[in-house]
């Protein structure tokens, strides 16, 4: 049988690297009974919601859902809350993929209510700020016209920091940054490089406030229809892929960062713990906004996640 696997990203991306490993492992474990067919961005369409439609209807049984999944599974916006995940990226990958979180009733139910099953989470690197001015403290970000996706939670987050979030379509973003319609931008490192955004920005700021997380999801009916062995096989595979996925994303983002340093004329800033602390305090009330927006399951998932982070890091290293 053939499992179709829809990616939000093009060939040669982090998602594609992960999916290739997924394909290799599944085809190995199933002794060739299962063939995984990868469908990168463009192969299923060009608007993410059509991918989610295809997963929900089962025509593509497996796929990734990241920042845009919020309209389909509101609770998934948990992944874009700031200062919730640990600072360490591998730690984050482990916690998100732990049974305690991934198998928790709240997280499972949130997806199952929409005909989906969450299988795994793939952190794709920090969400990094760029700006045309130096940013170290909340005073620096005051009134910065920073581009965010048109999404109520992100808007609330950056308003909490004191910035003026502005919405600009992805396709228009480069010109907007170049012409100064927007002063700043938030993307994972690879996107800054891919779209050339770094060419038209002066500073790149690692605040490690959040990571770009892609959720690996499956169609519920399809998943329930799999044999127990096959479900077990998926579970083993996603477990193995926690470390592999982390390696893929770190290598990928490091290479892209090198390119940015080589080609671009951009100053890279890493915030100190004290500086991060100031932003963390401002971000905390936004957790309540999230709970108000998405309701009980979201609150439970948030609490589960916070507990896991607490016990893993002793509450210090966030």
């Amino acid at each position: 049988e053939t499992w179709r696997f829809g990616l939000e990203e093009i060939e040669g991306s982090v998602q594609h690297g992960y999916a290739e490993e997924f394909k290799r492992l599944i085809e190995e474990k199933s002794d060739g009974d299962v063939t995984v067919q990868l469908l990168p961005y463009g192969k299923w369409g060009s608007d993410y919601s059509t991918l989610y439609d295809a997963i929900q209807s089962g025509s593509i049984p497996i796929g990734f859902g990241s920042g845009f999944l919020g309209g389909t599974v509101p609770e998934s916006q948990l992944m874009s809350l700031n200062f919730v995940m640990p600072e360490d990226q591998l730690e984050t990958a482990k916690i998100l993929n732990s049974d305690a979180f991934m198998k928790s009733d709240a997280w499972q139910q949130a997806y199952r209510n929409r005909g989906l099953v969450p299988l795994a989470a793939l952190p794709e690197g920090y969400q990094v700020w760029t700006a045309n001015r130096e940013i170290r403290t909340p005073e620096d970000i005051e009134n910065l016209q920073i581009r965010v996706m048109d999404n109520s939670l992100l808007r609330a987050t950056y308003e909490a920091y004191g910035a003026s979030p502005i919405t600009i379509a992805y396709g228009e973003l480069y010109s907007a940054l170049q012409q100064g319609q927007a002063d700043g931008n938030i993307q994972p490192v690879f996107a800054h490089e891919e779209m050339g955004f770094y060419e038209v920005q002066d500073y790149m700021i690692f605040a490690k406030q959040s990571q770009f997380v892609a959720n690996l999801i499956a169609n519920l009916d399809w998943y329930e229809g799999l044999s127990e062995d096959q479900q077990q096989m998926i579970e083993e595979t996603t477990d193995e892929l926690v470390q592999i996925g982390h390696d893929i994303q770190s290598k990928f983002n490091e290479e892209r960062l090198e390119t940015i340093k080589e080609k671009g004329n951009i100053e890279i800033i890493e915030l100190s713990d004290e500086e991060r602390e100031q932003f963390r305090e401002l971000a905390e009330p936004v957790r309540q906004t999230f709970v108000d927006d998405v309701g009980e399951l979201g609150e439970q998932a948030l609490n589960t996640l916070l507990e896991q982070v607490e016990s893993a890091t002793g509450g210090s290293a966030q």
Partner: peptide
């Protein structure tokens, strides 16, 4: 009908699609 059952909403304003 399917979208209504799945409760898809818009990202910024939460309008039922």
């Amino acid at each position: 009908v399917t979208l209504q059952e799945r409760g898809r909403t818009s990202a910024a304003l939460g309008i039922p699609m």
